[in-house]
Amino acid sequence: MLIMLLEYEGEFDTFNLSSNIGTSQKNVIEMIQKLGLEPQVEYLPARSVDAKKIILSNQRIRKIYSRSIIPVNEGIELYYQWLQKKMMSKDISYRTIKW
């Protein structure tokens, strides 16, 4: 998908890279916890400018990218696996990752 965007020469300059399915921050935290991680979470009161719900449209990206888009939970898991491999190969240090 990113290669398609690098080569894109159309009329749009902004794309939402989304699955077109809403996922709450709470759901993302739960997905991370299922990986055995304990993210530090601080809940603050909502601000007047905070949207209660946002689902970004991926119509523009779908016009130039027709392959399937992986669900967010699978993407988080794949990214975590990639990070683990990088840490094992000493490319990055555990201390450099802000959990």
Rank of each mutant, 00 (worst) to 15 (best):
P45D: 09
R67Q: 12
V41M: 05
M31C: 07
G36I: 02
N73Q: 08
M1A: 04
R95H: 11
R95I: 12
L56T: 07
A51T: 09
R60Y: 04
I92V: 09
V28S: 10
R62H: 03
I69P: 00
G10Q: 03
A46S: 13
M87W: 08
K63W: 06
I32E: 01
Q25V: 13
K53H: 15
K63A: 10
L6H: 07
E7W: 07
E74Q: 14
Y94G: 10
Y43M: 12
L17C: 06
E7N: 13
K26D: 10
N16V: 02
L37E: 13
I61V: 08
S19Y: 00
I3N: 12
M88V: 14
K63L: 06
I54C: 11
S48W: 14
E42Q: 09
E74T: 11
E9V: 08
I54G: 03
Q25L: 11
Q33E: 15
S93W: 06
S48E: 15
N20K: 07
Q40M: 11
I3Y: 12
I32W: 00
Y94C: 10
T14N: 09
D91W: 11
I70D: 09
Q81K: 12
W99H: 08
K34H: 03
E42P: 00
T14Y: 12
I92R: 01
K63C: 08
L35T: 00
A51M: 10
A51C: 07
